[in-house]
């Protein structure tokens, strides 16, 4: 009985399915998503690559000194690096997007 009522009611309900990829689900404002990096702010302190639990941050060097390179294909989006960076050089976004054809595009420099 209960299910028959439910079935009839469902004729008049809004559909629950989302027609991906035509319709996209907006991530909420607080969603922990992809990272971006601002080289000019970074002082190369090394905290970020030492805390990263997924070893997604590699240490590198350029003409300004030590710097991180983010391998976002390994990132688990825990955002400890964002919290720990003393210069706020790592920015979080709410972009889900680690769905790419080319893995090298997930290297953030």
């Amino acid at each position: 009985m209960v299910t028959s009522f439910e079935a009839i009611k469902n004729f008049f309900r809004k559909r629950a399915t989302i027609l991906y990829p035509e319709e996209k689900i907006e991530p909420s404002a607080t969603f922990r998503g992809m990272l971006s990096f601002e080289r000019s702010l970074c002082i190369g302190c090394g905290l970020c690559w030492r805390v990263c639990p997924a070893s997604a941050i590699k240490q590198d060097r350029d003409d300004k000194g030590a710097r991180p390179v983010f391998l976002l294909d390994r990132c688990i989006f825990c955002h400890i690096c964002v919290e720990i960076c003393p210069k706020k050089a790592i920015k979080a976004s709410r972009d889900r997007g680690s769905l790419v054809m080319d893995k090298s595009s997930l290297r953030v420099k």
Binding site: S28, T30, F31, R32, I76, F77, C78, H79
Partner: peptide, 19 residues
């Protein structure tokens, strides 16, 4: 279950793996 997961995302920042 879906609305509950949406709430989780909004409170914690992750849908299932909340952190």
């Amino acid at each position: 279950r879906e609305p509950v997961l949406d709430l989780m995302e909004e409170i914690t920042g992750g849908r299932v793996t909340t952190g």
